[in-house]
Simulated scan of single mutants.
Amino acid sequence: MKRASKGDVIFDSIKWIFLAVVVFVTLYPFYYVLIQSLSQGMSALTDNVIFYPKKLTLENYIPFFTDEKWKTAIFISVFRTVTGTAIGLMFTCLVSYSLSFKDLAFRKFYFTILIISMYFSGGIIPYYMLLKNLNLFNTFLVYIIPGALNIFFVMVGISFFREIPQELFDSAHVDGANDFIIFWKLVLPVSKPFLATIALFLGVEHWNAWFDSAFFVQKPELKTLSFLMMQIVNKNQISGSVSAGAAAYKSSMITSFSLQSAAMIIAVLPIICVYPFLQKYFVKGMMIGSVKG
């Protein structure tokens, strides 16, 4: 085995030091928020929290799981994410799969509508009036229907479905399979990278969405977790963001920043837990359309 030269050793050392610095700079902000959320608020204010929690505690998370408002918001966000992702995935697959066929009637017309709607928007006022005329205000459907079809994901799906060999469809037709069976038993099983990638993007989008909850929903029982967390993060004082009893309990132990840290951890934790299961498909899905147009 050839012995590494002095120059190679120096280069490798610099490379690993640089990578270690990049990893530290990338991960430490998240780690800092985590240890702040696990520290007793007043102790974290008096002692610098750098590498480990001060007076380890879970009291910063208690309001999010004991207050009825927060428990309802968690349910609404989970239900919205699951429902919105499933419906968005279904419509995206159906539309993109249909438009991937070059002999589809009025295909150019459909493409024109999609391209125009992707690059041009009517604006917030027409959007507001449309939702109002559809009676979607103060309903759960305002979270689902407007985002049921993402044009960009449709374009990605068209690129993916075009890469499926035509011979697979021809052999399936010869065996007597109809279009529904081909789509369900042939196309979807080979589309796992695409489905996993789109599902991850849709899930993150629905989980983090707060704009529609802020402007199109006034009912407290329909507010999402992201909206309440935005209120927490943007407030300098915790009063009004939790129940009066919980606020009185916190006054001596929990600070505004420790509560904000707990809110941020709760916001990102579900995505971190889901991503490892989709990673092997996500890497493949990110390459969709990079070779063939």
Rank of each mutant, 00 (worst) to 15 (best):
K2L: 11
R3M: 14
R3L: 13
A4N: 12
K6G: 14
K6A: 14
F11L: 15
I14R: 03
L19M: 11
A20Q: 14
F24C: 13
F24I: 10
P29T: 06
Y31P: 01
Y31G: 07
L38K: 00
S39C: 10
L45F: 10
T46N: 10
F51P: 03
Y52T: 13
P53H: 02
K55E: 14
K55N: 14
T57M: 05
T57H: 00
I62L: 10
P63L: 06
F64S: 04
F64N: 01
F64A: 04
F64Y: 14
D67H: 07
D67V: 04
K69V: 09
K69Y: 14
W70A: 13
K71C: 08
A73F: 06
A73K: 01
A73I: 01
I76R: 05
T81P: 00
V82Y: 01
G88C: 05
G88Q: 04
T92M: 11
C93P: 00
V95I: 13
V95C: 07
S98W: 04
L99C: 09
S100G: 01
K102V: 13
L104H: 09
A105G: 06
A105N: 14
F109D: 02
Y110Q: 01
T112R: 08
I115N: 01
Y119W: 12
G123M: 07
I124F: 12
I124T: 13
I125T: 10
L130G: 15
L130W: 12
K132D: 08
N133S: 13
N133W: 09
L134F: 14
N135I: 07
T139N: 10
F140E: 05
L141I: 00
Y143I: 11
I145K: 07
G147R: 00
G147S: 00
G147H: 01
N150S: 15
N150H: 13
V154I: 08
V156D: 07
Q166E: 15
E167T: 09
E167I: 13
D170S: 12
D170T: 12
S171M: 10
A172D: 10
V174C: 08
F180T: 07
I181D: 05
F183W: 09
K185I: 01
F194R: 06
A196T: 08
T197E: 02
T197K: 07
I198P: 04
V204R: 05
E205P: 03
W207H: 05
W207C: 02
N208W: 06
A209S: 15
S213E: 00
A214P: 01
F216E: 05
V217R: 00
Q218P: 04
P220I: 12
E221H: 13
K223H: 09
T224E: 06
L225S: 05
L228P: 01
M229N: 08
M230L: 12
M230C: 10
Q231H: 01
V233G: 03
K235M: 07
K235V: 00
N236P: 00
I238E: 00
S239G: 07
A246E: 05
A248M: 10
S251I: 12
I254E: 04
S261T: 11
S261C: 09
I265K: 05
I266E: 08
V268A: 11
P276N: 03
F277E: 00
L278E: 07
L278S: 04
F282Y: 15
F282N: 00
K284S: 14
M287D: 05
M287Q: 07
G289E: 05
K292I: 04
